[in-house]
């Protein structure tokens, strides 16, 4: 039943193009979304979900353990998370603490973690759990996903080697940053979230998130400079 609904979602397509989000004040947009969810029923959930689907898919792609590629499709995760969202949307609407997107992202992330757990058995101490660059070991830390994300696409061996070097440097740089700095960069650049979304995800004020981001960039630059020995 729900699966059928899902198919209709994909076909409907987003009725609010991505760019329009910027045409409205962000707060207004959030309010409007909540209104439409309250009045529009399951179709409204489906529409709104498909609007954010590309971003959610990016998140899944970025955070999924490399070893699950091929075994688990991002689509599978998204489908599961959609079912969960549809199931819980009413209780979310009772007292929405964050925007719909941030909430949906949260659910999707949880779904992904569940999937990791069932496929990889996080509890077991495994050598592969250690942070490894080339193997793309699993860890919930951002830096590993960043690194293997960067490693993921290699067009020729030599390019791979060069990128491997850059990744190595970037990874080292990220490793030495504190976790919020790291997360801010990942959210902004790899999940492509806006400042407001980052603020919500990390429970920061907008100004704080914004300053945090600029500072994280500065630190990254500084650390990279140091590793490059300039």
């Amino acid at each position: 039943m729900l699966v059928l609904e899902w198919v209709s979602v994909s076909q409907t397509g987003p009725d609010l193009p991505f760019k329009h989000r910027f045409a409205l004040s962000e707060t207004d947009a959030t309010q409007q979304e909540l209104e439409s969810l309250r009045s529009g029923g399951p179709q409204a959930v489906a529409d709104l979900y498909s609007k954010y689907r590309p971003q959610l898919e990016r998140m899944v792609d970025f955070r999924m353990d490399r070893r699950l590629l091929g075994r688990v499709d991002a689509g599978d995760i998204l489908q599961d998370s959609y079912i969960e969202i549809a199931r819980r949307v009413d209780s979310f609407l009772e007292d929405p603490a964050v925007s719909f997107f941030v909430w949906a992202r949260q659910i999707t992330w949880q779904t992904l973690m569940m999937s990791h757990r069932s496929h990889l058995g996080v509890q077991k101490r495994d050598a592969r759990q250690e942070v490894r660059l080339h193997g793309g070991g699993y860890s919930q830390g951002t830096s590993v996903s960043l690194a293997s994300r960067l490693m993921g696409d290699v067009t020729s061996p030599s390019q791979g080697a060069i990128r491997s070097e850059q990744t190595q440097q970037l990874r080292e740089a990220l490793d030495s940053m504190d976790s919020i700095d790291r997360e801010v960069l990942a959210l902004r650049h790899f999940e492509q979230l806006s400042n407001k979304e980052v603020a919500e995800v990390l429970s920061l004020g907008k100004t704080a998130a914004s300053n945090r981001y600029v500072r994280a960039l500065e630190r990254l630059k500084k650390i990279m400079d140091e590793t490059l020995g300039t």
Partner: peptide
Amino acid sequence: PSIQAIEQLGSHAASEKRFAKANA
């Protein structure tokens, strides 16, 4: 320039996804 680098390195997601999907 750091932003450029991050974005550039991150922009290859599409092809990676294709590969994973094909595998799947």
